[in-house]
């Protein structure tokens, strides 16, 4: 079976496709031996690969690590402030409840706004106006006078309850009235 060159170069070359079977690989290898065009192509690719492997590893500029680490520390400190400023968001994140951060921020903002409004109201707008007339000048309740008869102490039998007396009767606390 003869393979066409394009196919050999495309799916064999130097990175042997893991999907190829052993037999397919053998066929392609055999083709490389027989076909000069493919062999040349293969060798050039091999050369490119060798060159790539021999490239020196780029050396990071001095101070790069420190620069990154400093930035990480700064970000960390900022996140502590964020925590103090917005514990709700942090708690949600920690609980992995996963609402969108923006949503959390808006919720927290709304919460603080309401809290502030409430505090402001409490401090500056506490009501000083007089209560409605109906509340202060309500008719005084009827008073029931309980008269204790001049009987021996504790003798409940002789407790007499007077029927509804009009309120204009002055209520006096002197015991002499109770006769």
């Amino acid at each position: 079976m003869s393979l066409d060159c394009k196919q050999v170069i495309e799916d064999f070359s130097l990175h042997q496709d893991p999907a190829l079977t052993h037999q397919e690989k053998l066929e392609r290898r055999q083709h490389l031996i027989e076909c000069e065009v493919c062999r040349n192509e293969y060798e050039q690719m091999l050369h490119t690969a060798v060159v790539l492997e021999s490239l020196p590893e780029p050396v990071p500029p001095p101070g790069l690590v420190e620069r990154i680490q400093t930035q990480i520390r700064q970000t960390h400190r900022r996140s502590i402030w964020d925590f103090l400023a917005n514990p709700i968001a942090r708690i949600l994140v920690a609980m992995k409840l996963g609402p969108h951060p923006t949503f959390v921020n808006y919720t927290a903002m709304l919460f603080y706004l309401m809290l502030t409004a409430f505090m402001v109201k409490l401090t500056f707008f506490s009501s000083t106006e007089t209560p409605p007339v109906a509340l202060t000048h309500a008719p005084s309740p009827h008073v029931r006078l309980v008269r204790l008869a001049d009987v021996k102490h504790g003798s409940l039998k002789s407790v007499r309850i007077e029927k509804e007396k009009p309120s204009e009767v002055p209520i006096q606390s002197t015991p002499s009235d109770f006769h």
């Binding site: 170069i9 495309e10 799916d11 070359s13 130097l14 990175h15 042997q16 496709d17 893991p18 999907a19 690719m45 490119t48 690969a49 790539l52």
Partner: peptide, 11 residues
């Protein structure tokens, strides 16, 4: 694998 082939060939 095939992307590597293409890459090396292009390179």
């Amino acid at each position: 694998a095939s992307r590597l082939n293409t890459a090396v060939r292009n390179l």
